[in-house]
Simulated scan of single mutants.
Amino acid sequence: MKWLSEQPTVRSARVIVTILEEMEPPVKRRSPPASMAGKAKILGDIVSPIVDEEDWECLK
């Protein structure tokens, strides 16, 4: 064992060693380019659909 700072003055001690798995680097989130800033438009209520529910049905 190598002390990183001054060695404590103790007669006996316990040492706990923890081995951690090597983790993969975090995934970077993609972000839109700065040139798009302020150009998005919300076309209606973001909670309710802009299209009527009847228009969702497929033609038979």
Rank of each mutant, 00 (worst) to 15 (best):
P49I: 03
E6R: 14
V15R: 01
P8Q: 01
D45H: 02
S5H: 13
S35T: 05
M36A: 15
S31V: 06
L4A: 09
E6S: 15
C58D: 12
E6D: 15
T9C: 15
D52E: 11
R11N: 14
V10I: 12
K39F: 02
G44Y: 00
E24H: 02
K41C: 12
D55L: 10
G44I: 00
C58G: 14
M1W: 01
S12A: 04
W56Y: 04
K2G: 02
P26T: 00
S35C: 07
A40R: 08
S12N: 05
S31G: 10
A13V: 02
A34T: 12
D45K: 03
K28C: 08
P49E: 04
M23V: 07
S12T: 05
S5M: 15
K41D: 11
V10N: 07
S35V: 04
A37C: 13
A34P: 11
E21Q: 03
I46K: 13
G38R: 00
A34R: 14
S35M: 06
P49Q: 06
E53R: 13
V47R: 14
P8M: 01
K28D: 07
L4S: 09
D45G: 01
K39D: 04
V10G: 08
E21R: 04
P26G: 00
S5C: 14
S5P: 12
M36V: 11
E54N: 10
E53C: 11
P33I: 01
V51G: 12
R29A: 07
D52R: 12
K2F: 01
T18L: 05
E6H: 15
S48L: 13
K60T: 09
T9H: 15
P8I: 01
K41Q: 12
E6N: 15
K60G: 13
K28P: 08
